[in-house]
Structure formats: structure tokens, C-alpha cells
Simulated assay, not measured.
Amino acid sequence: MSTSSTSLDQALALLRAGELVGIPTETVYGLAADAGNPEAIAKIFAAKGRPADHPVIVHIAGAEQLPDWATDIPAAAWQLAEAFWPGPLTLILPRKASTPLAVTGGQDSVGVRAPAHPLTHELLKQFRGGLAAPSANQFGHVSPTTAQHVRDEFDTATLQLVLDGGPCEVGVESTIVSLIGAPKLLRPGGVPREAIETLLGIELEHHQSASSAKIRASGLLDSHYSPRTPLLTGPLAVLRAEAVERSDAGQKVLLLSFAGTAPQGVSAAVLPDDPEQFARDIYATLRHYDRKGFAALLLESPPQTPAWLAVNDRLRRAAHQRL
């Protein structure tokens, strides 16, 4: 990874001028704009085709900036920030009055995190404000984990600069914890649920939808992170039978499994059996095969264990059908 100081200076100039910049984080690449500038934030929503009531996360350099965006910050927030920031954890807190409603989707809550990627951390330190930065892709599509993925999504008229920070190390989005009322896990991600529960000494409520959580947050929609090719998930035996049926009907399909094998006449690809490697690879894998002309992608469901919680959450939302 090498990004010149000229690129960083260019990024700062664009952001201060109210323009968009693609930025790397340890989770996925973000489409960044000045979080204090509603007109700049509007450009994010227009570029992504994102609904205006869907909030975006404010990225900051560190916990010392929390009071710039949130109010009534509980002790648990400071504990979590000290333990996991910079890192893949987003905290939902009461919105400070000066925080633009464009960031919060009109809600009185705001999501804030301090990303760990060294390039973006330096950008944030020099910017001295917050950056609204949802994933740098069309709304609902597979998240980007390389700079090239971002360039594939947006033309240069929309996005003049993408800072190249190499492949993302985590590969799935941040864990989101709401600290409004009882602590709630809204989205599993790069920080394990168990680590948060151990630190706080409580069991987190887990809400998998905006309606049950009674709060809108990034990544809680039932359909999200999806390739354009139909994605089907389920047990391997069921997928193998589906693959044979579709192949016999003349469809070109791909079976992605931990074994990496498929019935005769069906294309095959192997999935890593380590949950961290799987998370790092899955979006790039889906993007790669989405361009190969398959009629369907059949992906073996991972184990339903705590280590696979974030991956299973993403696949549940990404799948067009679960068998």
C-alpha cells in the first residue's frame, strides 16, 4: 500500500469543497463526504441511490471527537471506545443538536465510529471533522473491499478520487451497538459480540431488523449486500440437487462450497473454512463471479456458530433465496 501525500492533500481539498472521496477502512471501502455539510451528504445519497431516511455512519479520528456529534454519552460508550477504537465498531448514541439530520436519516440518534485503517485515520486527523461514509457501492449491492471495486461502481464525474489502501483486512462492515436504552446489537461485524458482552458484563439484545430495534441503522434492511446474479444459500445436499436440476435445464450455475466440488457439468469454487478469511474474501468472491455470466450462484451456508455470526448475517440479507 502506498498513497502519496499529494493524494491525501487532494482528498482533503475535495472533502472541504463538499465533494465525494472513496476511502479505505479495515471493514469495507467508504464513499466519504463532510458529515457537517448537508449538501455534501446529499451527494452520497444521490450517487448511491440510497433512501434519504437511511442513516449513514459518521467516521471520526478518535473518541475525543464523540461530543462533537453525540450528547448524553453513557459510560458504556467510553468503555467500548477505549477498548475497540480505532476499529470496526459503530456506536449509536443520541444526536447532538448540531449534527445534520441528513446524516441520521431524520432520527435523533447518530452512528459514530473511528476506523482503524492508517490512511483514513490520518485523513481524519488532518480533516479535523467527521466524514459520513457508507459503503462505496450502489445501494443494496455487494460492498467494495478494494479500490478497484469502488471504481467499478462510480464514474469519474461522480467520484474524482479513490484513495487506494489495499484490500480490506476485515472484509465485512462494522459491528453496530445501540447505547440508547439497554445496549443492543444491531449488526454483527468485525468486533465479536462476545467481546462486547464480556467488557460490559451484560448479554446484548440482538435485533436483526429496524422494526424490532425501533431504530434505523446501516445494514438492517432485509435485502442488502446482494450480487446482481441470483444468490441462493442453503445446505450443501440441497444445493447440489438444485445445481443438477438447473444444469439439466441448460442453465450455467456455480456451486460455492467448503468442499469445492460439484456434480458433473456444474462449475465449482471453494470457500475458506475459517470465518475470518471467509469474511475477508466473500464480497470480492461474489463480485468476481457476478461478472461471469452465471444464471445463479449457489452458496453453501456456513455453520450457525458465534464465530460465523457476522458472515451469516450478511449472507441472509444478500441471498435472493434460501433453500
Rank of each mutant, 00 (worst) to 15 (best):
M1K: 05
M1R: 08
S5T: 12
S7V: 13
S7I: 10
L8N: 07
R16S: 15
A17K: 15
G18H: 10
E19A: 14
P24T: 05
T27A: 15
Y29A: 09
G30S: 06
A32W: 09
D34W: 10
D34N: 15
G36V: 00
E39G: 03
K43T: 05
F45Q: 05
F45G: 06
F45H: 07
A46Q: 15
A52K: 12
D53P: 00
P55Q: 12
V56Y: 05
I57M: 01
P67Y: 07
W69D: 02
W69L: 02
A70G: 01
A76H: 11
L80K: 04
E82V: 07
A83R: 14
F84K: 11
W85K: 05
P86H: 05
G87N: 07
G87E: 06
L89N: 09
T90D: 00
L91T: 06
L93K: 00
P94V: 04
R95F: 08
K96N: 13
A97F: 07
S98Y: 03
S98F: 04
P100R: 10
A102V: 11
V103D: 03
V103A: 08
T104C: 13
Q107N: 06
D108H: 10
S109M: 10
G111K: 02
V112N: 02
A116I: 05
P118C: 07
L119H: 02
E122Y: 08
L123S: 11
K125F: 09
K125Q: 15
F127I: 09
A132L: 09
A132I: 03
A133Y: 10
T145A: 09
T145P: 11
A147L: 12
V150D: 12
D152G: 11
Q160I: 01
V162P: 02
V162C: 01
L163H: 00
P167Q: 12
C168W: 11
G171F: 04
G171K: 01
V172I: 14
S174R: 06
S174W: 07
T175W: 13
I176P: 08
L186H: 09
L186N: 06
R187G: 00
P188Y: 11
G190I: 04
G190P: 05
R193N: 10
I196L: 11
L200E: 03
I202F: 11
E203P: 00
E205K: 12
A210R: 12
S211I: 12
S212L: 13
S218E: 15
D222Y: 06
H224K: 05
L231K: 02
T233A: 01
P235R: 04
R240F: 06
A241D: 09
A241N: 01
V244N: 02
S247G: 12
A249L: 13
A249D: 15
Q251R: 13
Q251M: 15
S257D: 03
F258D: 04
F258E: 06
G260K: 01
G260N: 00
G260I: 01
P263H: 00
Q264W: 14
A268C: 02
V270E: 14
V270C: 13
V270I: 14
D273R: 13
D274Q: 09
P275W: 04
A279R: 15
R280P: 02
Y283W: 04
Y283K: 01
T285F: 15
R287Q: 14
R287T: 12
R291N: 14
K292G: 04
L297S: 03
L299R: 00
P303N: 07
A310Y: 01
V311Q: 08
N312Q: 13
L315Q: 04
L315T: 00
L315N: 02
A318E: 06
L323R: 14
